[in-house]
Structures are given as structure tokens and as C-alpha cells.
Design a protein around this nucleic acid. Structure first.
Lengths: 147, 147
DNA sequence: GATGAAAGATGTGGCGG
DNA sequence: CCGCCACATCTTTCATC
């Protein structure tokens, strides 16, 4: 389903997703048409879900990043997760096992913005408690892994 | 530093970062050259750090996503974070205050792969303990926030 | 700062091998 | 998968406002 050539192409796109098909073809040593067809297939198969800029959110005003653990009632967990995921501050929502039931990564423009969000979380039916870790430093934040 | 036009352009790029400058220009109602210059400036200023494909990592073999809390000795924390960030399984490393000192988001190809990583963490000098949350479901995972 | 034009590069689809 | 073709579209620059 994904062969060596696909992986090479994806890997190049991870470095610069705005490279032309010709440049990519040159780098991997295949014909332009092949690169074009591979990328199109990878998009159709949903392996590539789209393309996005990597942004410096701190420079865009999001000076606060938080990792929030949520404990919630089993019956409502899926609904709660979906509701949380809708909030525009939220980057990630994981359904987990362990100390918490849900882990949320969210970014805010200042403390006020964050406090409002956490209070909103606690008002959701089924949410029992939350624990907020505030990031003092983002050492790495990039969903670009080796393929 | 970032005006309304910049935000509009960024917002469009977030939807599809491979759109042509022409298409973007059409959408925001300015000349092509303007869009071109704005995006170049945003890149130069480091607000846009590059472009990447959004990948379905599950389809690429990463079937296990984890959120790992790490407790470590204060003196060594920054070094430890950098070391963790180097591992190719690691997407995010946050220096946090709270229950843990470091929170790590990492993805693995199977339990073995994960176990090796956690054992490696525990062998790092200064790491006291770790707590691993395994994601049963990824409800949302997308560093694309409103600008 | 923004604009539109223009030259060369690229995207896109299709052909036979 | 390659090489080639062909037309439409795009990137990038720049003189001009």
C-alpha cells in the first residue's frame, strides 16, 4: 500500500510541501508523472490528508500552551471529547487509559482565555475534574515523524 | 507585524497549503504579487516555518500514540528534554509545571517499539519516573488553530 | 506598500513503450 | 514506471503607481 518510493516522496514533502513535482522527481530520481500520480494516490487514499503551513503560534499571539488531563464519567466520554474538540483553542484530544480519561492540548492568548476554557470544561456534563499542565517551554511540537 | 490580510492568507493556507498564489489572491481580493510578497515575508519572519503534509500516521504504521509524563531532577531537565526530542518517535516535548516536569507526545509501531522507548527514557540520567497514557482513540490531532 | 504584465517554469492529462 | 507532448496555469520579477 505504501512502498519505498511513496515514503521517499512523503519524506521530501515533510521538508517542504510546496516543492514542485519536478523538484521532487529530481530528488527521488523518477519521472515527474510518477511523482504526480503517487501524490494524487496518497491523497485519495487519505494517507496525505492535505497540506498546511507550520506556524509559530507564539508569534501569532498564542502565548500559552496547556496539556489538560480530564476525568469524566464513562458513559459520556465520547460526547465530551467531541465537544471539547470543537473548541477553537484545541489542537489535540486523546481518549486515553490511565490516570485521566481524556488528554487535551490547547493554546490560549493569555491567562484569561485559558481560565475561561477550563471553567467551560468543568461545566460540561460528565466532567468530574481536570488537571492543567502549563507549558513553560515548547521544546518540540511538530507532527512530522519519520515514515 | 501581522495584519488582517496576513491572517486571511494564513487561514487559507491552513485549509490548503498547496493552493497557488493566484487562487489565494482571488480569494482574498488582492493582486498575486501582494500574496506572494506577504507569504515570503511571513516565512522570513518565521511566522510561517514551512509547509508540511498532514499525514494519517495510523495508515503509515504508527498504530500507537502515547502521552508520557516524566518526572526528572531539576538540574538536568533541559538536557533531558533535548535528548528526548531527538528520538524519531517524538512529536512534542513540553516543559511543564505541575504533576510532571516534562510531557511527551510520541508515536510507535507496536508495543515493542513503545516499550523500548519507555525503557530508554528511564535509563536517561536524571529521569525519576514516567507515566504513560496510551491513546485508545485520537479524537483530534491537528495543530491548525484560528489565527 | 500594491499592482498588472510578461517570461520562463510548472501542473495536468494523455500517449505508446 | 518512463519519456514525450501539449495546453493551461503558475511563479517570480519588476516597472509603475
Amino acid at each position: 500500500m505504501v512502498d519505498e518510493l511513496d515514503r521517499k516522496i512523503i519524506s521530501i514533502l515533510q521538508e517542504d510541501a510546496r516543492l514542485s513535482y519536478r523538484e521532487i522527481a529530481k530528488k527521488v530520481g523518477v519521472a515527474v508523472g510518477t511523482v504526480y500520480n503517487r501524490i494524487k494516490r496518497l491523497e485519495e487514499e487519505g494517507i496525505i490528508r492535505g497540506f498546511a503551513p507550520k506556524l509559530d503560534y507564539a508569534k501569532l499571539g498564542y502565548d500559552l500552551t496547556t496539556i489538560i488531563g480530564v476525568k469524566a464519567q464513562g458513559k459520556r466520554i465520547i460526547e465530551i471529547e467531541r465537544e471539547i474538540a470543537k473548541d477553537p483553542h484545541v489542537a489535540c484530544v486523546y481518549d486515553v487509559t490511565g490516570e485521566y480519561d481524556i488528554i487535551v492540548i490547547a493554546k490560549f492568548r493569555g491567562r484569561e482565555d485559558m481560565n475561561r476554557f477550563v471553567k467551560k470544561l468543568l461545566r460540561i456534563d460528565g466532567v468530574e475534574k481536570t488537571y492543567t499542565h502549563v507549558a513553560m517551554d515548547i521544546v518540540k511540537e511538530d507532527l512530522t515523524l519519520e515514515v
